[in-house]
Amino acid sequence: NRRVIAMPSVRKYAREKGVDIRLVQGTGKNGRVLKEDIDAWLAG
């Protein structure tokens, strides 16, 4: 149960899109989840 590193704005964006942020692979520094990662996850 790893802790997800993401800015609050990215967490909010994921919530609005209905994405469980824990399932998204972060590509930022130290595995940080970026807004682009959410978009990529939604695109498949």
Score class of each variant (00 low, 15 high):
Asp37Cys: 01
Asn1Tyr: 03
Ser9Trp: 13
Pro8His: 11
Ala14Arg: 00
Val33Asp: 00
Arg15Gly: 07
Lys17Glu: 06
Arg3Leu: 11
Gly26Met: 02
Ala6Ile: 05
Asn30Glu: 10
Trp41Leu: 06
Arg22Met: 11
Lys17Ile: 08
Gly26Glu: 02
Ala40Trp: 10
Asp37Asn: 08
Asn30Val: 07
Gly26His: 04
Lys12Ser: 06
Arg3Lys: 15
Arg11Asp: 02
Asn1Gly: 14
Gly28Ile: 03
Glu36His: 14
Gly44Leu: 14
Lys17Gly: 04
Tyr13Pro: 00
Arg11Cys: 08
Asp20Phe: 06
Gly44Val: 13
Gly18His: 11
Asn1Thr: 12
Arg22Leu: 10
Val33Arg: 02
Lys35Gln: 09
Ile21Leu: 09
Lys17Met: 14
Arg22Phe: 11
Gly31Glu: 06
Asn30Trp: 13
Val24Trp: 02
Val4Gly: 05
Lys35Cys: 06
Ala40Gln: 13
Ile21Met: 06
Val33Gln: 02
Asp39Ile: 09
Trp41Gly: 02
Asp39Lys: 07
Asn1Ile: 14
Ser9Cys: 09
Ala6Asp: 02
Gly26Arg: 03
Val24Glu: 00
Leu23Met: 13
Ala6Ser: 05
Arg11Gly: 02
Asn30Ile: 07
Val33Ile: 15
Asp39Glu: 09
Lys35Ile: 09
Leu34Asn: 09
Ala40Ser: 12
Arg32Pro: 01
Leu34Thr: 10
Lys35Phe: 08
Arg3Ile: 14
Arg15Lys: 13
Lys12Pro: 01
Arg3Phe: 05
Lys12Arg: 14
Leu34Val: 11
Lys12Ala: 09
Val19Ile: 10
Arg3His: 15
Val19Met: 05
Arg15Glu: 06
Glu36Pro: 12
Glu16Asp: 12
Pro8Lys: 15
Asp20His: 06
Gly28Met: 03
Ile38Pro: 00
Glu16Val: 12
Ala14Gln: 00
Arg32Thr: 07
Glu36Gly: 15
Lys35Pro: 05
Lys12Val: 06
Asn30Pro: 02
Ile38Tyr: 00
Ala14Pro: 01
Val10Leu: 04
Asn1Trp: 03
Gly18Ser: 10
Thr27Trp: 04
Arg2Leu: 14
Pro8Ala: 14
Tyr13Phe: 05
Gly18Phe: 09
Lys12Gln: 09
Ala43Ile: 13
Asp37Met: 01
Gly31Lys: 07
Asn1Phe: 03
Gly31Ala: 08
Asn1Glu: 14
Glu16Pro: 00
Asp20Gly: 03
Val33Ala: 03
Asn30Gln: 11
Gly44Phe: 14
Asp37Ala: 01
Arg2Ser: 10
Arg15Gln: 09
Val19Pro: 00
Ser9Glu: 11
Val10His: 02
Gly28Val: 03
Arg15Thr: 10
Gly28Thr: 03
Gly18Trp: 08
Asp39Cys: 06
Lys17Gln: 13
Asp39Arg: 06
Ala40Met: 13
Ala6Asn: 03
Arg32Asp: 05
Ile5Cys: 08
Ile38Leu: 04
Lys35Ser: 07
Lys29Asp: 09
Gly18Thr: 05
Gly44His: 14
Val19Gly: 00
Val33Ser: 01
Gly31Phe: 09
Ala43Tyr: 12
Gln25Glu: 13
Lys29His: 10
Lys35Thr: 08
Arg32Gln: 09
Tyr13Ala: 03
Gly44Thr: 14
Tyr13Val: 03
Pro8Ser: 10
Arg11Val: 06
Lys29Ser: 10
Gly18Ala: 09
Ala14Val: 01
Asn1Arg: 13
Asp39Thr: 08
Val10Ile: 07
Ala43Val: 12
Ala40Phe: 12
Ile21Pro: 03
Val33Met: 03
Gly28Leu: 03
Ile38Arg: 00
Val19Phe: 02
Leu42Ala: 08
Asp37Glu: 01
Gly18Gln: 10
Leu42Met: 12
Val4Gln: 06
Asn30Thr: 08
Tyr13Trp: 05
Gly26Asp: 02
Val10Glu: 06
Ala43Ser: 12
Asn1Val: 14
Ile21Tyr: 05
Lys29Leu: 12
Glu36Trp: 13
Trp41Val: 06
Glu36Arg: 15
Ala6Thr: 05
Arg22Trp: 12
Ile21Asp: 01
Gly44Cys: 08
Tyr13Arg: 03
Ala14Ser: 08
Arg3Thr: 13
Ile21Gly: 01
Leu23Arg: 13
Gly28Cys: 04
Asp37Ile: 00
Arg11Pro: 01
Arg11Ala: 04
Arg11Ile: 07
Pro8Phe: 05
Gly18Met: 11
Val19Arg: 00
Gly26Tyr: 03
Val24Gly: 01
Trp41Lys: 05
Gly26Pro: 10
Asp20Gln: 07
Gly31Pro: 02
Pro8Glu: 07
Asp20Thr: 05
Leu23Val: 13
Gln25Asn: 13
Glu16Trp: 12
Asn30Lys: 14
Arg15Trp: 12
Arg3Glu: 15
Asn30Arg: 14
Glu16Arg: 15
Arg22His: 11
Met7Ala: 15
Met7Ile: 09
Lys17Thr: 09
Leu23Tyr: 13
Arg2Asn: 15
Gly44Gln: 14
Gly18Leu: 09
Val19Tyr: 01
Val4Trp: 03
Gly44Glu: 14
Lys17Asp: 01
Val10Phe: 01
Ile38Gly: 00
Asp39His: 05
Lys35Leu: 10
Ala43Thr: 13
Gly31Asp: 07
Trp41Ala: 06
Gln25Phe: 15
Leu42Gly: 05
Arg15Ile: 11
Thr27Gly: 06
Arg11Phe: 10
Ser9Val: 10
Lys35His: 08
Ala40Asn: 13
Arg15Met: 10
Ala43Asp: 12
Lys17Cys: 06
Gly26Phe: 03
Val10Trp: 02
Lys12Phe: 08
Met7Lys: 15
Lys17Arg: 12
Ser9Pro: 06
Ile5Asn: 08
Asp39Trp: 05
Leu42His: 06
Asp20Arg: 06
Val24Pro: 04
Ala14Tyr: 01
Asp37Gly: 01
Ile38Ser: 00
Glu16Lys: 14
Thr27Ala: 04
Gly44Ala: 14
Glu36Asn: 13
Ala43Pro: 06
Lys29Glu: 10
Gly18Arg: 11
Ala40Arg: 15
Met7Leu: 14
Lys17Leu: 12
Leu34Ile: 11
Gly28His: 03
Ala43His: 12
Lys12Met: 08
Ser9Arg: 14
Thr27Met: 06
Lys12Thr: 06
Trp41Ile: 06
